[in-house]
Design a protein around this nucleic acid. Structure first.
Lengths: 292, 292
DNA sequence: GTTCCGCATGAATCGATAG
DNA sequence: ACTATCGATTCATGCGGAA
């Protein structure tokens, strides 16, 4: 069995038309937010956002398998002291397209952007909207139950005692209890609230979301050899995680530099896998990275 | 100065008309959810929810001061495997009424109801929608500040492991009032994600939300002698907390038993205050509970 | 090898200033 | 007047260098 990673360079609205219908198991993406990332993506005005996104979601509906899931990471911007409504309008319009709005997960950003204003606090959460084509869809709940604890233990092992205390005492983080549970090897039951920090430390390229985010959804909604799609690939977090987890992946981005960067990184993973193959099974799947 | 607690028995849609316009500083309420609490409120079908609520929100808009705030605790129900859209539609309609949708806080329910379903995880969060009449409104941010990392770092070093956990859970909840008084420096502002456990120590009645919830918003949006309104009083959590915090309060409920129960509880607080007056200042405000 | 401290860096938001 | 840009504000994170 071979694991592929396809990278498509271009506007996803067009490139998505090249994909076969009912072929994708999971879509995880974080489109540019309204008026955000102007330098790279041009920025979409809040008033135009729904109109801009609907042709894309229409294609996504076409390529997704009937049992597949679409996870949309998004958050509305504040405009003149008020939360914009384009996300809600988008949900209502996507339902008209045929999408089922199954669930809304909350991503609690433990390290949100700082700042102080007279009329609001720091924004520490984002929406993770789950859409489906049918009421029945593939979901492998056991896969996130067990690894959650392992993940926590593995992470905490590398932390110093001060770091643990720091973690516990973070403002509003509310994780003192959770961490103590992890240390006691208690089971961490997942809910629809995810607590993850953003990765803001990478010098070369900062990812929109931390690797744990796509990892969690890939575990939950796909199996090995399934196909994961990210139409707004960016720094490629989704693809890299999917590749590591032996899922086939498709990424689309309009920025050539991003495509090239992700290709390089995927190839680095490739080399690592080949060199260290002693640690892996003999019938390790071949991996193949394509860019077109 | 006298602190009043008024309880109005009846349908809030009608009773609200008795209140003076521009007279209320803060509205905190948790209306009956769609199709929930059928036995007491009759249950409102999700399709009728917006239509049912709009006349009430219109009255709320009338009675709220221009500088006041309306906090609406609500969450959409799952209908046939899909999240209902009535909350989003309600926000859009309330904006048409003249409300400004300033912010959406997330209430993360740390100990949400356990359970397992094939298609979804436990629902561990609810919306706390903030609406205002104007872009400028009263907000006392310092009142809800929370101790921050460096302090805990230095302080917690000398505590036992259990103490750390206990203290941290207070800090993490974002409402460690004792701790924040104990320490007057190194405090930080909270974010728009609140971590609270639901109260499960209910004897006769189940409180819609924990006392910390109205407490936090009353601290944030009102001062002593201000007026707090809960048009769906229920077990009266909002009124009791407001009364304790020396805010005037108005509660409305259609169930006579609830009104009577809240009245009794408020009078108990009253007696406690009178009996233990040695501990209080001489000019402790008189408190007065009315039911009509 | 630990533990501790300093530092840069964010899907932010407001208000003032500039065209 | 109305829109675009800029500075000020603020704090969790994890890396690297020092004790």
């Amino acid at each position: 069995m071979e694991i592929n990673a396809d990278i498509l360079l271009g506007d996803c609205k067009e490139k998505l038309k090249l994909l076969e219908e009912n072929s994708v198991d999971l879509i995880v993406t974080s489109p540019p937010y309204a008026d955000q990332r102007k330098s790279t993506y041009g920025g979409i005005h809040p008033d135009d956002y729904v109109e801009w996104f609907l042709p894309i979601s229409e294609q996504l509906l076409r390529v997704l398998k009937p049992t597949g899931t679409f996870i949309l990471n998004i958050k509305e911007k504040v405009v003149e002291g008020e939360r914009s409504t384009y996300v809600m309008e988008l949900i209502l319009e996507m339902r008209k397209q045929g999408w089922i709005w199954t669930e809304e997960f909350i991503w609690h950003k433990k390290n949100c952007y700082p700042g102080k204003w007279p009329n609001r606090f720091r924004d520490a959460w984002e929406r993770l909207l789950q859409f489906n084509k049918n009421r029945k869809f593939s979901m492998y709940q056991e896969e996130v139950m067990v690894p959650m604890g392992d993940w926590a233990n593995a992470r905490l092992k590398n932390l110093s005692e001060t770091d643990k205390i720091r973690d516990n005492s973070k403002v509003g983080s509310g994780f003192g209890k959770n961490i103590s549970n992890w240390l006691n090897r208690d089971k961490a039951y997942p809910s629809n609230v995810l607590h993850l920090a953003t990765e803001c430390n990478n010098k070369n390229h900062s990812a929109a979301f931390p690797e744990e985010l796509p990892e969690w959804f890939i575990k939950l909604f796909t199996r090995e050899n399934d196909i994961v799609l990210d139409p707004f690939m960016g720094s490629g977090t989704t693809l890299i995680v999917a590749n590591r987890m032996k899922r086939n992946s498709i990424g689309i981005d309009i920025i050539p530099d991003y495509c090239e960067m992700v290709r390089e990184q995927l190839n680095t993973v490739e080399l690592y896998l080949l060199e260290g193959k002693g640690k892996y099974e003999k019938n390790e799947p071949k991996k193949c990275v394509n860019i077109r």
